[in-house]
């Protein structure tokens, strides 16, 4: 799976939770949970959607690595490559 595909899946998962989000306007270096206004329930549903779409099960211990959209994409690329 290439980066563009991962990006598409992530946005699709995100829009399932926050339909108003427009991928173009999202600042990818900012704190994702602030940028999209995700509360803890939204965050968990977002991770569940990623799990279903990409098969990547992100443990709680890794939450702190996933600050921004850029960080999340890099993390997913690494997990999918290994």
């Amino acid at each position: 799976m290439d980066d563009a595909q991962i990006r598409r899946e992530v946005f699709a998962a995100l829009q399932g939770i926050a339909p108003e989000v427009e991928p173009e306007t999202l600042r990818s270096d900012r704190l994702l949970r602030d940028e999209v206004d995700l509360d803890s329930m939204d965050w968990l549903r977002f991770l569940a959607a990623l799990h279903q779409r990409l098969g990547v099960n992100i443990p709680e211990a890794d939450y702190q690595k996933l600050t921004s959209l850029d960080a999340l994409l890099a993390y997913l690329a690494e997990r999918l490559a290994s």
Partner: peptide
Amino acid sequence: LAAHNAGLAPERRLLPG
């Protein structure tokens, strides 16, 4: 909670709330 959630898929995890 961390012990409970460890190893569980996100769909099955509990929130502190």
